Amino acid sequence: MLHVDLFSVYLAVIASGLALSLVWLVVARTFPTLYAARYWFGGALAAGVGSALSLWRGAVDPMVPIVLGNGMILIGSGLGWAGVRELNRRSAPLLIILGITASAVVALSITTVLYDSSHFRIVILSAAQSVLIGWAVVDILDRRTGGRSLGCLIAAGACGVLLLLNAARSVFAVLAVSGELPLATPSPMQAGLVLLVAMFGALVCQFGFLLMTMDRLQAEMVQLAGMDDLTGVANRRRFLSVCEQECIRSIRTGRPFSVMVIDIDRFKAINDGYGHAAGDEFLKLLARTARAHLRGQDLLARLGGDEFSVLMPETSGENATKSANRLVAAIREVTLSRDGATVGSTISVGVAEWTPAVGNDPCVLLELADRALYLTKNGGRDGVTVAPSSPVQVGEPLAA
């Protein structure tokens, strides 16, 4: 007959909890702004400590392993949920976790001191843990935060195994209390199997969390690679990539989009007269002002130096020109203070609309907008010019 050493199983559970806490501690220290790792570190540590306390059942006062140990296990489950919320950039539900844990601890104390019933304790613990795990599953699978990635599916599946385990334990406990199940207490074999399934579910869930973390870090790296360090807007690489995708979409649908190319007038005078720090501040001011006057779907990018661009999906050249004129007027009104002086400037804008003749080359469209910008500069600056609809060859010299 197969024999399960319950003591060894408990040791394996404790070791896995402590090992996971060490993993998340390293992740938290390596990525200090990844606060979800801190919650998962605390959750794994609390679960490991709770399992260690449960190991002393029968050797010390039952309040320690039953109430304190299970309470720590519930806190571990709750912190796992809090980590998911934090990874999704949502507030951690610490008060809810503490409320559920405190209620379960009180109920466990009653069923230990006043009315000793292991079956009721199983139901209480399973119900409280299932609520925490269930809410975690909802947040894991939230589509708004990419809840269909492999890591999310693995973590949610493992949580589902734990929920099924808790449901089965509760059903057997209720049947035992009602007398419909002749087995009063689980055998060491059954208890060991329950612990092994729980440990397997927890380990797979943590593996899913790790994959979710890798997806988040990879997404942040991609975002940083496409961001201008100074202004926080998109850089030239990201702009060209998105613009190329928009060209392909317009070829497929026939619907146009437009781009602006923006240049700060006499920007060199700001740098020479007030220093490069003032020039950097004006670049940031322009970026903030442009963001405030553009739509949420518009992409603002810094192409380099004092040149910016805007991609406006589903926008005709006429409507883009209206937006550009509003932006020109807005920049004309904003200033910054530098050493008691007021620093301001204007912008020149060139607008170009995608047409089928442009094809899928974003550089052609940028060249059109750049030619329009050149005309604005020659016409006295502080204004907007719309490019002709005919494409040009990239690199063709500008007309004088």
Rank of each mutant, 00 (worst) to 15 (best):
M189H: 13
T231K: 01
S309E: 02
G317I: 04
I100H: 10
V328G: 02
E353M: 04
S187M: 15
S389T: 07
K284F: 08
V392F: 12
R291P: 10
D265S: 05
E246K: 02
G83D: 06
R121P: 10
G42L: 12
L336Y: 04
V84N: 08
L365G: 00
A202S: 12
I248A: 03
P188W: 12
A127I: 01
T385A: 12
G192W: 09
D61C: 04
W56I: 00
F209C: 09
R255E: 06
S345H: 02
E86F: 01
Y115I: 15
H3R: 12
D280G: 04
G58T: 08
L2E: 13
F207H: 14
G201K: 07
T112C: 11
D280P: 03
L79D: 07
A156K: 08
I270W: 02
A176P: 06
G279L: 01
G76P: 15
W354V: 07
V222D: 07
N319H: 06
F31K: 09
G58E: 09
T231R: 00
P32N: 05
G304L: 01
L230S: 03
V349R: 00
L373M: 11
T101P: 06
N360D: 14
R89K: 14
A301L: 02
G42R: 06
E307Y: 06
E307L: 07
G305C: 09
C243H: 01
A104T: 12
V364M: 04
A198C: 15
L68V: 14
S109W: 10
L285Y: 12
G232I: 00
D5P: 11
I248T: 05
V328W: 02
T213K: 08
Y39M: 01
L45R: 08
S118V: 12
L368M: 13
P397Y: 12
E86L: 08
G383M: 10
I331S: 01
I97G: 01
L95E: 14
T315P: 05
G232Q: 01
L398I: 11
L181P: 05
L183T: 11
Y374N: 10
M221H: 15
N319D: 07
A324Y: 03
Q393V: 13
M221P: 08
S348T: 03
C205V: 10
L240P: 06
T112A: 13
G179A: 10
T213Q: 09
A104V: 13
S345G: 02
I14Q: 10
V105S: 15
D263P: 08
R38L: 07
E246S: 02
Q297P: 07
S250I: 11
M199W: 08
L365T: 03
